[in-house]
Design a protein around this nucleic acid. Structure first.
Lengths: 249, 249
DNA sequence: CGGCCAGTTGACGGACCTCAACTGTAGTGG
DNA sequence: CCACTACAGTTGAGGTCCGTCAACTGGCCG
């Protein structure tokens, strides 16, 4: 009836918000959507902008950023594909969003999307569930920021990235290999550290052979279980024992 | 038809989840709800428990707590009245909930509540909005934990508490007076600090006359704007200049 | 009174920040 | 081809904020 739409090519049409919709509803939503393809480091919206659009991330990673008065940035969240942004009760955004990698997204003007939501409770349900998941992730992050030392934070970050990497077919090995789409400074802004500290912890992880770094963005994790153990250490000093881990007092 | 129900006495029936419901629907929901009244420091659910109930907090404050392997606790969130808990996609809770103050709540078994939700999208919408708000709060908290020094964190915490205090009738002054329902250790667990550091920052705030402490739990904030300024400082060292604040380089 | 707990304060050390120098890589243009 | 620049990243030296350990105070209750 509609012929081929861009939805048919979409990587995430069986995930994300569209997973909740049947073909008809998706075609209807398509009417009010606008496709955007962004290179890395482009602004999607700014802190203080009118929150007049919703966004469905179909490819890539988006940074949610607060800029402090002294110019420092803090990344309060990452939205990976398939993701959704724009749920807020405020009239204006309280943080900025920019593409961390190349990003593809569908944007929806607020008013017609809200109207569509009213007639499609299954979509609202889906967005609700995605929001609940984000809240869980955010709460876990407060634990990392509040209670972990720099070594554990960096390990935790790499672990999160590794777990989000699509597994190769029939992948069973513990080895993960991926390219980091972030600078040391960006990771620092996310981890509540400085870029120097992040770099030092990379060096430490490398020295202990928990990761290998063919180049600075090229991460090989020989054994993800090992990395996971490092990320969960709860006594900071034990991270500094070479080899044996000390019992916790 | 039903005569007087306990909902008629409820402080928050015009807020929280019940605000979304008309009298009939509320009466219906009442059928599956169970009222619980808890003193401070009682467990509502434990980390790892089956997530088989939802909870609507009608009075008091609930702590969401993760216990680490070394016995330390971290408070990942507070739920104030009117609040809602239990939205999770996991079969089991990933943190514990316990009353921080005296708490009154309505609990709803998961299955019938979910069924009720299906027929009352306005309630789902309400819970969704409350979840979005919590996500916003949680993201702001990551900024505090990731980028603020102990002085700012304690100020930020007091500011949050002060803002949640119900204003007296026609209150226009900048003065706020309330009783803290937390020990220094609990605040430390929330702020990612130690109880000693929290205590030191209380002393500092007191010495600078930003707060007054008739007793250790009795907080008087003479000028909330002043406290707000302290909480938003973005250069840590400037917090230590007595009197003048240094320009940020 | 004595025990217990919350809270305060001090001394000290360590993890992380700041400042700085240096390396490596990529892009530009003579 | 080789400066020259620009930027990401690494590494070191030194200072400081905060955690650890400890002693002390004050209130409460049996």
């Amino acid at each position: 009836m509609h012929g081929i739409t861009r939805c048919d090519m979409c990587q995430v049409r069986r995930e994300g918000i569209c997973a909740a919709l049947d073909d008809d509803a998706r075609a209807q939503l398509l009417q009010i959507s606008r496709r955007r393809v962004l290179a890395a480091h482009n602004v999607i919206f700014r802190d203080g902008d009118e929150a007049d659009h919703y966004f469905s991330i179909t490819s890539g990673i988006v940074k949610l950023v607060k800029t402090l008065a002294d110019g420092h940035q803090h990344i309060i969240g990452l939205v990976h594909q398939p993701g959704f942004m724009g749920q807020t009760l405020n009239r204006r955004h309280t943080y900025a969003a920019e593409s961390a990698t190349g990003v593809e997204l569908c944007s929806y003007p607020r008013a017609p999307f809200d109207a569509f939501l009213k007639t499609h409770p299954e979509l609202e349900r889906q967005i609700f569930e995605m929001t609940v998941r984000e809240l869980d992730v955010c709460r876990d992050w407060t634990l990392l920021l509040g209670r972990k030392c720099s070594y554990e934070r960096v390990a935790g970050f790499l672990l999160m990235m590794a777990r989000r990497m699509p597994k190769a077919e029939g992948q069973v090995s513990n080895t993960v290999h991926f390219e980091l789409p972030f600078t040391r400074a960006e990771m620092a802004d996310y981890l509540g550290l400085t870029l120097e500290t992040v770099s030092r912890q990379f060096s430490r992880l490398k020295k202990k052979r928990i990761i290998a770094l063919p180049s600075s963005r090229d991460i090989i994790i020989p054994d993800i279980e090992l990395l996971s153990a490092v990320a969960q250490i709860e006594s900071c000093s034990s991270a500094f024992d070479e080899g044996q881990s000390r019992a916790i007092a």
